[in-house]
Design a protein around this nucleic acid. Structure first.
Lengths: 155, 155
DNA sequence: TAGTCTATTGCATAAATATACAAAAATTGG
DNA sequence: CCAATTTTTGTATATTTATGCAATAGACTA
């Protein structure tokens, strides 16, 4: 478990859950067998430029800031995907990927270019990619393939 | 100086300046002869749903959440949708919205911003929006929700 | 290889923010 | 006007987050 992997996971956890404070985040990481101190999380959240907001229900939640969090020049497909990727969800034979604003096209192109047999095609908007899964391929089969291709993403 | 006035001033100060913490905000208010404690500011920021973000220079800044500062309100989204909307059709777990030319993106953004639980994601072209319906949600359920949100549209 | 440099982390603690509680101020209904 | 109720605020303190420092590990150079 290196730092970059932890950062990606944290980003995913933040996007996919309502996390109220660093203690809670620490607990979620612990469930995944990642042990870090609050101090490290404070630094991680800073480097991800995560902001803390008030929810309308009175609590708090973390949010990943628009864009800024990562800008770099890794030029392989997996790098492109890692950089913009936020979350992936499924519905029937369709999948929806949320990305940082403006990254959808990059992610979709990278996805296409990998030539995954399980995916029939993709369409990209600005921060959303929709793709169609090949008939007969289950969510679980696809997830397993994706995890193999992107061990850093926690899909 | 009543509370509402102070809240408005705080919002303006936050939008117009880079304020790093409550102490700084307190000082700016003091310059304007408004004396309050940090505790009160903490409550004020909560009621304004101000979030604290990391700047790319390493510092912090407060930001007023979309809903409160800009007119990113529900009413405006509904207006945006009504203006460009032409028709909505379904196929399986997918929906297709036709709009006036050029309106697709606006409609999609508005749709997304409403945060409808039933919709997984959207992609916009020029005059067409495609969206994916969440698994387990039927056409009829979605239509019913949409009719409630947009009584003026014939969905 | 030894020495140097850099990155990452935990520990302890500082700094920043939130809140329980009580008091003061404002509002409401006779 | 008064009494009852609600709102707003400060004080003191709890909670949450950030950071100085030292330790460790890996990378790089000569």
């Amino acid at each position: 478990m290196d730092k970059q992997t932890r950062l990606n996971l944290i980003r995913n956890l933040i996007v996919g859950n309502n996390i109220e404070n660093q203690e809670q985040l620490q607990a979620m990481l612990a469930e995944r067998n990642i042990q870090v101190t609050q101090a490290t999380l404070s630094r991680d959240l800073k480097s991800l430029k995560v902001s803390k907001s008030h929810s309308s229900q009175g609590g708090y939640y973390y949010a990943v800031s628009e864009g800024e969090s990562k800008r770099g020049t890794r030029d392989n497909f997996i790098g492109d995907i890692s950089r913009g990727f936020l979350s992936m969800k499924f519905s029937g034979n369709m999948g929806v990927i949320r990305t940082l604003p403006g990254y959808a096209n990059t992610v979709a192109v990278a996805f296409d270019s990998l030539g995954l047999d399980e995916i029939l095609g993709t369409v990209a908007g600005d921060d959303t990619v929709i793709f169609v899964i090949k008939e007969g391929v289950t969510k679980e089969m696809l997830k397993s393939v994706l995890r193999k291709n992107f061990p850093s993403l926690y899909i």
